[in-house]
Nucleic acid binder design. Structure first.
Lengths: 133, 133
DNA sequence: GTTCTTGCAAAGGATTTGCATCCTC
DNA sequence: GAGGATGCAAATCCTTTGCAAGAAC
């Protein structure tokens, strides 16, 4: 299966993978755990966490927020977006104008009222590119 | 000062505000606490947390990630972005094509290598708009 | 004076870690 | 068999809460 990432194919890992494939939305580890538990009652939450991290590190799944974890206050009051380094997790600012995305405001399909855009540009910062040579 | 938001002007609150104004980047509560403690050694971390939340609720400051908190796995493998309701915090998906932002890949100013865009459209979902009438 | 705030300590939730045992390769 | 994976419990990190004492309006 998808385990050319150097991961052993264990029963637990396989079931977690299958369940993730068939879930939709943005499940939390607890939600995944609850589903997996129905098929493997003896599984532990720690195992679910470990495997979710492995899947994310391997790029098999993404996580929704690249900078979840702790509360961060935005001190830059100018319109700007974020450059998020996927390697070192650093976040730096870039002026909205400099990035130049044409963002639609107002109603979107589905009736959602768009008021503000928060863009994360994911990639590698200059420093991590140098190290990756 | 900025306290037409119905907040009492306490010494602690004032100092926290001033310090936030003069910080840059995306400080964590602990970092803010450390700075404030230099001016008010007796301040408690809980007070910093309470005031950060009040500032954010009042719109005086923003928080960096609208959906920090717990790990969420992305189960939608199609290119898409997120509609984040600022009232009920719900997150729904919208196809990248449907949103239609022209995103630049490759090198950005500062040497950042852009690989992927994660866009949060902040606003009100249809349901919360109805309730807000 | 009444109400909102603070500081402290304890509680809570989410996530990680250590370790013995078990399972893939 | 060797090394990675699991399960459990304890530990840790981040954040919130309860409450008595203190400050703002």
């Amino acid at each position: 299966m998808c385990e050319n990432a150097g991961l052993a194919v264990t029963h637990q890992r396989h079931v977690i993978y299958e369940i993730l494939k068939n879930m939709h939305g943005h499940p939390s580890p607890e939600e995944v755990y609850a589903r997996v538990k129905r098929r493997i009652p003896s599984i532990s939450l720690a195992t679910v966490y470990k495997n979710l991290h492995l899947f994310i590190e391997s790029g098999i799944f993404h996580e929704v927020s690249l900078h979840h974890g702790s509360l961060r206050v935005e001190t830059n009051h100018r319109p700007h977006h974020h450059l998020v380094c996927t390697r070192c997790k650093s976040i730096s600012d870039i002026d909205a104008k400099e990035l130049g995305l044409a963002a639609k405001h107002g109603k979107l399909p589905g009736g959602f009222l768009a008021q503000r855009y928060a863009v994360d540009v994911l990639g590698l910062c200059a420093e991590c590119q140098r190290k990756a040579d």
